[in-house]
């Protein structure tokens, strides 16, 4: 656990943790609002967003792609809402129509465009390149206090940290309106909370988290982190405040264990190559959720019979 760890593992691990937390925070509310699959929809439309951004700018640079992906997510949310409201179609089906069509358009554009010279492909969008986000200039733990070396940290880390902090602060500031309108929308409307704006803001922050995370870790982690840590956390406690804390813990744990298993796990069972870290992080989050489903203290729904007994 010395110089090599700081060089090769510290930054990917940190990026994984920050991405997981940034997605898990809005995920808590999405789950309670029965909108868990919005995360699924958003992560699918990231692909057409980056392809369109590439076709317009002609370069693979970070900001246009992030902007394109964010625009695509927001567009998708608006289309879903329009189909739901004007077409009177239930939200699940409206989502299904929208994200699959946009994803198809993205794949088609990708095939049509000349991408032989650049690295932009579906697999990248799906599972990212967490393993490659290393910090070569680092020489050990002391590099963490050396400004010159710190300046060479991968951009993805700075970006992901900024987004995670932004979402954390946003959740803190809008905590009360979020909580009240998630629990009781009519009541929230009656005390002048702008319910639709809160709902839209939540979805936009989910989109921002997804977009920042996909670049580093791909969309599998995004979907898994939106849902698995908050779902497991819901089974651990009956208070929203503690649920958020548990979800952050589970997200962190998934990122660390997933990264470690992906990098070192294969060696333990005698294989040479590492496996996909993004896939492994998603798998570990699923295992944590499975454990919670079997063992967590508040895993059961309170039945009607129990209600009467009180």
């Amino acid at each position: 656990m010395g110089a090599e760890f700081v060089q090769l593992s510290l930054t990917p691990m940190l990026i994984g943790i920050l991405a997981a937390i940034a997605c898990a925070l809005p995920g808590n509310f999405l789950i309670l609002r029965r909108q868990a699959l919005i995360g699924d929809a958003i992560s699918h439309v990231v692909l057409p967003g980056i392809v369109v951004a590439f076709l317009i700018t002609g370069t693979i640079s970070t900001w246009p792609m992030i902007f394109g992906a964010a625009a695509a997510s927001i567009l998708a949310v608006i289309i879903i809402e329009a189909i739901r409201r004007f077409g009177k179609i239930e939200p699940g089906a409206a989502m299904g129509v929208t994200f699959t069509s946009m994803f198809a358009a993205g794949v088609l554009l990708l095939e049509q465009s000349d991408t032989s010279s650049v690295h932009i492909d579906v697999e990248h969008a799906l599972y990212g390149n967490l393993e490659s986000l290393i910090w070569l200039e680092a020489e050990g733990w002391h590099s963490l206090i050396d400004p010159a070396t710190l300046a060479t940290l991968p951009d993805e880390l700075t970006r992901m940290a900024a987004v995670a902090v932004l979402i954390g602060i946003g959740t803190w500031i809008f905590w009360r309106p979020l909580k009240i309108s998630t629990f009781d929308e009519t009541f929230a409307g009656s005390i002048a909370i702008p319910v639709s704006a809160v709902g839209f803001g939540l979805v936009v922050s989910a989109a921002v988290a997804a977009v920042a995370a996909f670049d580093a870790v791909g969309s599998i982690i995004v979907i898994a982190m939106f849902i698995c840590p908050p779902a497991a956390a819901r089974l651990m406690t009956n208070r929203l405040e503690s649920q958020i804390m548990w979800s952050i813990l589970f997200a962190t744990l998934s990122a660390i264990l997933g990264y470690v298993f992906a990098g070192y796990g294969p060696q333990w069972i005698g294989l040479d190559n590492a496996v996909s870290a993004a896939g492994m992080i998603a798998t570990v989050s699923g295992l944590i959720l499975a454990l919670a489903c079997f063992l967590a203290p508040h895993r059961k729904r309170l039945g009607a019979a129990e209600n009467l007994g009180q």
Partner: peptide
């Protein structure tokens, strides 16, 4: 009209009335 499975205590719900 609400989901009573929401993770909150009685006190938390009544506190919502203080929001304004």
């Amino acid at each position: 009209s609400v989901d009573w499975d929401f993770p909150a205590r009685v006190l938390d719900v009544v506190m919502m009335g203080l929001y304004p």
